[in-house]
């Protein structure tokens, strides 16, 4: 998960939970713009430098603040899409993440992206199967899997 867009995050979570339902072993690797999706909106951490504070403010703080990649229209499009999803019973990102946890989907977070954007481990979500790692861990999983998607 490279993208930080709502639509793409939804797609990847649907594929991940669907794959888990089919009996597949699933790992999601979050990197770059995908990293802030996993921030916990309720957690505050101090001790960040200027750039870290800036990234922290400008990037979404968790699934609730993630925007659409198209038709965002200064946030209006995202609000409309979220209400439409609710109306049509489509699960929210938050619910999809909970579901992923229930279905033993493992999540890897790119340590380098975290460091680059000044995110600290303490500000990320509570998730039962969370690993902070680098590209080798991702490749190890990718090499042994039949399906790899870059979203």
């Amino acid at each position: 998960m490279f993208s930080g867009d709502l639509d793409k995050a939804l797609a990847s979570l649907i594929i991940a939970t669907g794959a888990a339902a089919m009996g597949m072993d699933v790992v999601m690797f979050f990197t770059f713009w995908g990293t802030p999706i996993l921030r916990d909106k309720g957690k505050k951490v101090g001790g960040k430098d200027f750039m870290g504070k800036m990234f922290g403010t400008m990037l979404p703080k968790g699934v609730c603040e993630v925007k659409l990649s198209k038709m965002n229209m200064a946030g209006m499009g995202t609000v409309m899409m979220k209400s439409l999803m609710k109306k049509k019973n489509v699960a929210s990102l938050e619910q999809m993440l909970e579901l992923a946890a229930e279905m033993d989907v493992r999540i890897y977070i790119c340590e380098m992206s975290m460091d680059l954007m000044g995110f600290k481990r303490e500000e990320m979500i509570e998730y039962p199967n969370l690993t902070f790692c680098g590209v080798a861990k991702f490749l190890e999983e990718a090499q042994n899997s039949k399906v790899q998607l870059f979203i």
Binding site: T17, G18, A21, M22, N89
Partner: peptide, 15 residues
């Protein structure tokens, strides 16, 4: 009933 993708297969796999 009323559940869109991916919930039907997720729920059936649990069920």
């Amino acid at each position: 009933k009323g559940m869109p993708c991916p919930m039907p297969i997720v729920k059936v796999s649990k069920g």
